[in-house]
Design a protein around this nucleic acid. Structure first.
Length: 805
DNA sequence: GAGTTTGAAACT
DNA sequence: CAGTTTCAAACTC
């Protein structure tokens, strides 16, 4: 069941690689406290799910109020409450339930709502979900009660907690709690249990239409029943559609990691294919059901480290960047095709929690990442390329998002760090099992990848750069590829379909790279979108990815990576608005364009005929490929550390200046505020340590800077003085010094003055004075009024002074 | 703001 | 790899 290769596993953080939960089905107490500092600052994150179906709701409630979710619709229901007395009850026809609750205390409330269909997902304050379970075979319900923390901690022991397995008639519900904070709780409801040691009882043959209606997690009082159909009946019965709802729960700073729930529902609308596979991926874990012949349904409830919320329903994807430290971008892609025989959603999610990676993969290969993969899925697995580009300690995540037919919509919530990407995969009727697709064996490359069956595939690996460096830099088989680069920024790549024709070397992909499907090719492309550029995409209908702003630059390399030529720090560069380009002929697809060279999309630029945007994914991809072909390091920072042992930054290639003396910004070294080095080929260089010209220039620059600072300070001081003066003079001075003249212009005075002016105007009108004369008369009267006011003011002041004296 | 200078990128 | 051209930023007026 493991999909992650051992070597990769070894590289992954413990939190991510804690996969024992899945395999170890035995019950275990939820782990203890979460070490996760992440705050629950974000209280709610709206999620958007596309649910063509009627509203379906899965509710997990953890709030103080006692919520008992009992989903006892016809078939099955899932209800999880984390309240102390609140049970998690799961009822399905033939469920095999594995519950691995993580001890997570989260107060964050996440709500996902599908306005279209009314599907809503709500997660709130899910607190320690823990055993014991209460299983009532009679009504197919499993009640998971919150266990006292002490129990949980004991059972949890160090980090991981063994999963709790509840067997119930062939279906299983996996609630996986990862011992460490930040790890997901996965609830999986495969129709048939394939795991050893788990009694596999076929679902109730009489089970009604298999449906999962789980949408709400958290403290929403109104809980809707979750209906989970048995996997057995899927074949021709009800129209099924794949629905995936992922709910992320935020974790308060002190509490355990937030819980993210992913609920995936596969609904075959046409019932064309008996095989329906849903591979929910939660917090880096993918639980897949493997039942070759049986339709699969998986409900995954995961608790991500961060506040990420994923809502995947049908065709929509919600991506929510997290607050640091859990800088996680979650991307979900679902593209159920109406008549696709197999509708599967693979939601492999690699979530980097801070520096952590959560990798969820769907494959049968034994990898540290544990997942339940349906065999049927394997049959239908299409090649999925998940590229994890992790910059060394990069402070940002980049996301490569499969762009299904350019149907990516950005959903952004103002004021929220959560960014959502809606990926609408073009409907392909041929999503049926594709033998030509990557074989399962290829998928089993034991490399971090995510393979999903059906038309939709998702892979969201986020690899911390420092954690993984060269995992699979080499292009892999078409089926699955994992590319890990030492890019300074982390990227999130979500392949949704077979690899596009253009497969540039991801190792050097620039941030913001969009890997688009080849023209006329597959319906899915790749978009590499740096998180910090999400804002650039607000106007873009395609992709939205958000990033957390608080990514700290952990390493010098990282800082340098984000340090453009100007030598600014990462925070500086990210916070400072990028200078707009003015390209006219390059279409912003050549390195002439700074935006393109920096891996950014043009935004608010002055360029003409710009192709450096998501609207021109293909062209941009080609351009990137061209640049990489020409120079594999074209998109790498030019300013990096020097030779080993050298701490000073230096230009990677050196400059070639001839006339500027390397003392103008023409020189890239000078522009980066670094001195030329031995690798420079400049002529007449004056940009060296002892250069008098350089010193003079530096002094001048310093002097200018000081001057600017002084001017700024002077302006500030002057402004402050003016404000202070106004503040002091505005109010009437009643004691001592009297009042300034204008303070005598009270309302009454104004009214009187106006009356005088009006009277003067009337008089002029009555006397038939010309307009000019009338104006003169009025102005004259106004002058008289002013004189009287001033006179009165002076008199009053004198009187006041005399009185005071 | 227009024109010039400059050097990296692109091209041959 | 070197020479040339293209390009956009930097700079000057």
């Amino acid at each position: 069941m493991d999909v992650v290769s051992p070597e990769l596993n070894s590289l992954l953080p413990d939190e991510i690689m804690d996969t024992e939960a899945i395999e170890d089905v035995p019950l275990s107490q939820p782990s203890g406290t979460s070490d996760q500092p992440e705050s629950g600052g974000d209280t709610s994150v709206p999620m958007e799910t596309d649910t063509p179906m009627a509203s379906e709701t899965l509710t997990l409630c953890a709030d103080a109020t006692e919520h008992t979710q009992t989903l006892t619709p016809t078939d099955s229901s899932l209800s999880i409450c984390s309240k102390s007395q609140i049970p998690i009850s799961i009822s399905s026809m033939s469920p095999l339930l594995t519950l691995k609750p993580v001890l997570a205390t989260s107060t964050a409330t996440t709500k996902t709502t599908d306005s279209m269909t009314g599907t809503s997902v709500t997660t709130s304050g899910l607190q320690k979900l823990s055993a014991p379970f209460t299983i009532s075979p009679a009504n197919h319900q499993i009640i998971l009660n919150k266990v006292a923390s002490s129990q949980a901690t004991e059972a949890a022991k160090s980090v991981g907690t063994s999963p709790q397995v509840i067997k119930q008639e062939g279906q299983k519900l996996l609630v996986t709690a990862i011992g460490k904070s930040g790890q997901p709780i996965v609830l999986q409801l495969p129709h048939t249990g394939s795991k050893p040691g788990v009694s596999q009882v076929s679902g109730d043959a009489k089970s009604p239409t298999p449906q999962f209606k789980v949408v709400a997690i958290g403290g929403r009082p109104e809980l809707k029943p979750v209906v989970a159909g048995t996997g057995n009946q899927v074949t021709t019965l009800q129209a099924q559609q794949l629905k995936t709802v992922q709910i992320a729960k935020k974790t308060p700073p002190s509490s355990a990691a937030p819980i993210k729930f992913i609920i995936t529902k596969t609904v075959n609308s046409k019932g064309l294919s008996p095989q329906t596979s849903v591979a929910p991926v939660l917090a880096g874990r993918v639980l897949t059901q493997s039942s070759p012949m049986m339709p699969q349904r998986t409900i995954s409830l995961s608790e991500p480290h961060g506040t990420t919320i994923q809502s995947i329903a049908g065709k929509k994807i919600a991506i929510s960047p997290l607050k640091s430290p859990s800088k996680v971008t979650v991307v979900s892609v679902a593209s159920p095709t109406s008549n696709a025989s197999q509708k599967s959603v693979a939601l492999p999610v690699n979530v980097a929690l801070g520096q952590q990676i959560l990798t969820v993969q769907q494959s049968t290969s034994a990898s540290p990442v544990k997942l339940a993969t349906s065999q049927t899925t394997a049959q239908n697995i299409k090649p999925v390329q998940s590229v994890a580009v992790g910059g060394v300690g990069s402070s940002q995540f980049k996301t490569i998002i499969p762009l299904p037919q350019s149907n990516v919509q950005q959903i952004q919530v103002p004021g929220s760090r959560f960014h959502y990407v809606r990926l609408v995969t073009a409907t392909t009727a041929s999503s049926t099992a594709q033998p030509s697709g990557p074989s399962t064996s290829s998928i089993q490359t034991a490399k971090p990848m995510v393979v999903s069956t059906g038309a939709v595939r998702m892979s969201v690996p986020i690899v911390p750069a420092q954690t993984i460096k060269q995992v699979a830099p080499k292009p892999l088989a078409s089926a699955a590829q994992v590319v890990t680069t030492t890019q300074t920024q982390q990227r999130l790549i979500m392949p949704a379909t077979p690899l596009p024709q253009i497969q540039p070397n991801f190792t050097n992909l620039p941030p913001g790279t969009v890997l688009a499907p080849a023209p006329g090719g597959g319906n899915v492309g790749y978009a590499v979108v740096p998180a910090q550029y999400v804002t650039q995409l607000q106007q873009s209908p395609f992709v939205t990815i958000a990033s957390s702003s608080g990514f700290p630059a952990t390493t010098g390399i990282q800082t340098q990576a984000k340090m453009p030529l100007n030598g600014l720090s990462t925070s500086e560069t990210t916070s400072r608005p990028r200078k707009p380009c003015n390209c006219t002929k390059s279409q912003c697809l050549k390195l002439y364009c700074d935006c393109f060279a920096n891996g950014e999309f043009c935004n608010n630029c002055n360029c003409n005929n710009c192709f450096n945007n998501l609207e021109h994914e293909t062209e941009r991809l080609k351009a990137i490929k061209t640049c990489l072909d020409r120079n594999p390091e074209a998109f790498k920072p030019k300013i990096g550390k020097g030779k080993e042992g050298e701490s000073d930054r230096r230009h990677s290639k050196g400059c070639n200046c001839k006339r500027s003396g390397c003392l103008k910004n023409y020189c890239e070294c000078y522009e980066a505020k670094i001195m030329c080095s031995s690798i420079c080929k400049c002529i007449g260089c004056k940009n060296f340590e002892e250069s008098p010209e350089r010193k003079t220039l530096m002094h001048l620059a310093d002097a200018a800077e000081v001057r600017v600072q002084q001017q700024t300070a002077a302006k500030t001081k002057l402004s402050s003085q003016i404000s202070d003066l106004l503040m002091r003079t505005a109010p009437v001075i009643t004691s001592g010094g009297g009042r300034l003249p204008y303070t005598f212009v009270t309302k009454e005075v104004l009214e009187a003055t106006c009356e005088c002016l009006v009277e003067q105007a009337k008089e002029a009108e009555q006397t038939h004075q010309p307009q000019a004369e009338a104006e003169r008369m009025i102005l004259e009267e106004f002058g008289h009024c002013l004189m009287r006011i001033i006179s009165s003011a002076g008199k009053a002041k004198v009187d006041s002074a005399s009185v005071s004296c």
